Computed example of a mutant assay.
Amino acid sequence: MKTSELFKEYIWLIDLLKTYGGITFEEINEKWVQTEMSGGVEMARSTFNRHKDAIEDIFGIYIECDRSNGYVYYIGNAKVLDDDTIQTWMLSTLSISNKIHENKSLYDRVLFENAPENDSIFDGLIEGMRKNLKIDIGYQKYDIETTPHVIIEPYCLKMFHRRWYVFGQLYKKINGREKSTFSLFSLDKIVSLKLLEEKFILPKDFDVEAYFSNYFGVIVFDGTRAERVVLRVYGNEAKDMKYRPLHHSQKCLKECDNSVDFEYFLCPTTDFRDYIIGRGTRMKVISPKWLAYEIRYKHMEAAKAYSEDK
């Protein structure tokens, strides 16, 4: 079964437990056979146990059984569902997708943005991460016609602007000697993937959230240092950002009639600077000065391009 299909079943089971709080395996099966996913076939106990283990492994959600109350299954750490993490975001997104799938009559009344998909690549990366296997990937580069191959240790997957990236240790030879470094690859540029027999050990002290905590997106290797950034945001953009922070470090410094000053501590990398430029007149850099000058210069260059006669 494809990983995408398994994920649908995982999410369905989590949603069911969230809705009922506690439910027996027999009651789970009664609900399960009513879904299109089941094909009218009951869920085997062994399948349920595998799903339970996978849900704990992928989402950190523990499904426990109250044997003293008629063998009722429930989410043992329900608080995790309220945390602001990638896991809860995935749960919410996939849960909505499942609900629409189970109500196909609504397909033409729900619009989604297109996102690049490659199930085989995603499946391979998930398997490599679960089994801690090194992976040989071939990827596209815009400036060359050949397909370079590299060996990586897949540490994690990260989504940014509707694109998936794999992050991990990259191994390559420099002057005849093998060296390793951290790297990110966009899944839509990976054209081939092969699981290797060689295993790797994920460092016990590796914390993916801590590693990316000072970054806005996926550019993490350009040498930009973390520093205090203050943005002045205007109108409805400011109101929206109060409820949907741009970064976890966001703090509100000052509110005026038509603007709000937000403070951040992060690395103002290219993807962060491009975001500011994209907001146009709705966002202005107050500090640091070098960043304000660069954004101003980019806006002037853009205006110049439109003003020049072709």
Score class of each variant (00 low, 15 high):
296 R>I: 10
199 K>Y: 06
185 F>P: 00
113 E>M: 10
226 A>Q: 08
113 E>L: 13
86 I>D: 03
309 D>N: 11
191 V>K: 07
310 K>H: 13
35 T>P: 00
92 S>M: 03
163 R>Y: 02
237 E>C: 07
238 A>E: 03
8 K>P: 00
98 N>D: 06
277 I>R: 02
167 F>I: 09
247 H>E: 06
271 D>I: 07
22 G>K: 07
306 Y>C: 08
215 Y>E: 01
226 A>R: 09
182 F>G: 02
227 E>G: 06
116 P>Y: 15
115 A>N: 04
32 W>S: 01
148 P>Q: 10
288 P>W: 10
282 R>V: 00
176 G>A: 05
91 L>Y: 03
204 K>Y: 03
107 Y>P: 02
3 T>N: 15
209 E>L: 13
153 E>W: 01
258 N>Y: 14
27 E>T: 12
205 D>Q: 14
272 F>H: 06
152 I>W: 01
131 K>I: 09
72 V>N: 05
265 F>V: 08
80 V>S: 03
305 A>G: 06
96 I>G: 14
248 H>R: 10
176 G>W: 08
202 L>T: 02
303 A>M: 12
140 Q>A: 10
2 K>A: 11
108 D>F: 03
72 V>T: 14
310 K>T: 13
105 S>E: 15
82 D>N: 09
281 T>V: 10
6 L>W: 08
26 E>G: 10
267 C>E: 09
122 F>K: 00
100 I>G: 00
209 E>H: 09
288 P>N: 11
240 D>Y: 15
75 I>F: 05
289 K>Q: 15
293 Y>T: 06
71 Y>E: 12
155 Y>A: 12
55 I>L: 06
65 C>H: 02
207 D>N: 11
256 C>W: 00
198 E>V: 11
309 D>K: 07
140 Q>N: 14
263 E>I: 06
293 Y>A: 08
295 I>D: 01
162 R>F: 14
69 N>E: 13
299 H>Q: 10
1 M>Q: 15
129 M>Y: 06
173 K>I: 12
147 T>N: 10
247 H>I: 09
48 F>Q: 09
104 K>G: 15
95 S>I: 03
71 Y>T: 09
277 I>S: 04
23 I>A: 03
69 N>C: 08
310 K>W: 13
160 F>T: 04
48 F>R: 03
180 S>W: 07
127 E>C: 01
220 V>G: 02
217 G>M: 08
152 I>H: 01
240 D>G: 09
287 S>W: 04
5 E>S: 15
34 Q>N: 13
292 A>I: 04
101 H>W: 13
231 L>E: 05
144 I>A: 11
115 A>C: 09
77 N>M: 10
114 N>V: 06
289 K>D: 13
90 M>Q: 07
77 N>D: 06
192 S>C: 14
236 N>S: 13
60 G>V: 05
1 M>Y: 07
62 Y>R: 04
165 Y>V: 12
75 I>P: 00
294 E>R: 10
152 I>D: 00
287 S>Q: 09
229 V>C: 00
81 L>G: 05
16 L>Y: 13
176 G>E: 03
94 L>T: 04
11 I>W: 02
67 R>T: 11
167 F>G: 01
152 I>K: 01
109 R>Q: 09
160 F>W: 11
210 A>K: 15
1 M>E: 15
35 T>W: 00
166 V>M: 11
76 G>M: 07
231 L>R: 04
